[in-house]
Design a protein around this nucleic acid. Structure first.
Lengths: 363, 363
DNA sequence: TGTCTAAATGACAAGGTTGTCATTTTTTCA
DNA sequence: TGAAAAAATGACAACCTTGTCATTTAGACA
């Protein structure tokens, strides 16, 4: 039995049926009597028979393979500290569903470069994948690629309204953050956001602004500082300046929303050096719920979650549905699908119990 | 041209050669005149021909696929905070080499359960992978699995001396940590380690003990506290107790080595609450160089790196070599291969300049 | 130029599966 | 019980490539 691989003929012989019947059994086709099926199955088990993917691929196009393009892993090695490592949660979500559906993930991790992505798609095509996920490291728009008729889903970004895509609802998340602070009694809320050149920055700012307006908070208290692109070392002084402005304001904020957890983390020592205790003197909120950062910070960060895993699940759910019945109308009129996150309460926000909450306007 | 896929016959026809010659060109076989090769290549380009993997698989078993089993992603979703997320750096290292060699990674992320792993191997077998990596979330021993003759490498763990495997050299790393502290003038060094029931705990303790001995540090100053299994919430009180014992010692340590970064991180507030400033009053070292943790801590943690990426690279390098020439003798007499990490200097260790360094014993 | 050798190219089978369609077996119902 | 219908099963081609070995072409040398 050393190195011996049984093929469908061996199974057929052992079971005393034709190869076609064996084929029917392994593909769960109907029209096989239970007694025959059992006999064949027994032979399959005995011979440890596995269908030869190559041969199968030649006849059908059922590869049971789903392609996944990401750049998480490549990025990790270049910038281990930052990087879109958390987008692995997207993969996690996809993974769960694919396993249930007995699909194997073919993962190509590549530079987030259009050429590389195209060649990845080519590789997928040659492996006859049944569907493709394209995972982005951060929420942004990409140019549409023309593919074959293979279902294609972008996760954590979008292309155009025809291209299936799932994104986080950054607008809604920032709104939730403000509403949470309101519930805790804060009415003077500062905002130090991401650059509005990226999607998340734009949407979160909008969510912040509109919520402030909606709740009739005095508009001149909206302390907004932009231009902080990312929480990398070189923008550290920008963060300094922004905090400076906010705190020197005539009536400074009792709470500040930061563009992401990383920024909030960096702000902590700056604030403390000014003698401000968090959350006693000032509350802060992050965004992303970047586990490592948010939980490692002291105090632990109250933040808004980026529903990465859920996004992955939603994309997978839909793609697998498409696979099962390709003609079904899409539920969605246009893309991207927006997925809502939620406030994750930890320690960095204090309740100002003395202050009354502004009544909510009717939208 | 809609949906039309050219096959080798189309190319041959267009180029005016036989299919075999086309086959030679796409497989870079020798024995084709340059002029012929060019003509064929032109036809290939024109028709956007891609060889059909299925058909190719049936004849040659060259799938260009490498299987990778991990449980990183699955684990992430269960325990986002801890989890072996950093083992993704192993994948990163493997990825680099595989891309260079034009191999595509087939990643199956599964529970770290023997049954699941076996079935993953079966899937890989049916896809004709050319080699398999098995990535463990933490350094430990696994029972050997009998596979086909496909090259199989375990990374971050080992099985038996015949099974190819790569592990971090925990013994050496802890030794480096102690030597670094010695260089900084510390001679009273405490140790609060991982449980010795896991490999890393065992080896690091040994590294610590033997180095202490080797440098003739008074043995009764070796303050060792064990039994801290992991830095999860429920062992928090254990960490408290351990620190208590160390600090109440007649001549307390000027530096403490912790079992990992997570533990060191948790120790910081405990130490500070006792009025000890880090590193002015006491120096601390972590282990793992868990980027998020070590860099997010304040002060940033001086630690020892777990050479995950390098381990991945080494495994990949060797597996790919095996693939290229299967008969070559292995360079290694027995496994696992040990890969050394290094001290990563950040902020949590202070130099005690006043104290002379013990002279190094000859080994 | 003709012969011999080496290099280049081609013809054809084989590989393991599924789709099509034919055949056999079982079931249904008069 | 027998004929018709339905269900189960089987025979065989086709899928696209590469390996083997045969044939043709180009090159070397007398």
């Amino acid at each position: 039995m050393e190195g011996f691989l049984a093929d469908i003929h061996d199974v057929a012989k052992l079971a005393g049926v034709s190869i076609k019947t064996v084929s029917r059994v392994i593909n769960h086709e109907q029209g096989v009597r239970e007694i025959t099926r059992a006999r064949v199955q027994k032979a399959i088990d005995k011979l440890q028979y596995t269908p030869h993917i190559g041969a199968r691929l030649m006849r059908s196009s059922k590869s049971n393979l789903i392609g996944l393009i990401s750049s998480t892993i490549s990025t990790v090695s270049r910038d281990p500290v930052k990087s879109g490592l958390s987008s692995i949660h997207i993969v996690s979500g996809i993974q769960q569903y694919c396993r249930k559906a007995n699909k194997t993930l073919l993962i190509i991790d590549t530079e987030p470069d259009e050429e590389d992505i195209k060649s990845s798609i080519d590789i997928f095509r040659s492996h006859q994948v049944e569907g493709i996920f394209h995972i982005l490291n951060y929420h942004h728009q990409v140019s549409p690629l023309q593919y074959s008729d293979t279902p294609f889903w972008i996760v954590n970004g979008y292309s155009n309204s025809q291209t299936a895509a799932v994104v986080p609802d950054d607008y809604h998340g920032q709104k939730l953050a403000v509403e949470y602070l309101l519930q805790q009694g804060h009415t003077r809320i500062g905002y130090i956001g991401l650059s509005t050149s990226i999607e998340a920055g734009k949407l979160r700012l909008k969510g912040f602004q509109e919520t402030i307006q909606q709740y009739d908070l005095p508009y001149d208290l909206m302390l907004t500082e932009l231009g902080i692109k990312n929480a990398s070392d070189n923008s550290f002084s920008l963060l300094h300046e922004a905090l400076d402005k906010l705190l020197k304001h005539a009536s400074p904020p009792t709470a500040i929303c930061f563009g992401n957890d990383e920024m909030a983390l960096q702000a902590i020592p700056i604030l403390e050096k000014r003698g401000l205790n968090i959350p006693d003197d000032i509350s802060i909120m992050g965004y992303d719920n970047d586990f490592a950062t948010a939980a490692a910070a002291r105090p632990k960060l109250t933040t808004v979650s980026l529903p990465y895993q859920r996004m992955g699940q939603i994309a997978a759910e839909n793609l697998l549905r498409q696979l099962q019945d390709p003609d079904a109308e899409s539920k969605f009129e246009d893309y991207p699908i927006k997925v809502k996150g939620e406030v994750v309460v930890r320690e960095s926000v204090r309740a100002l119990s003395s202050i009354k909450i502004a009544s909510k306007k009717i939208i």
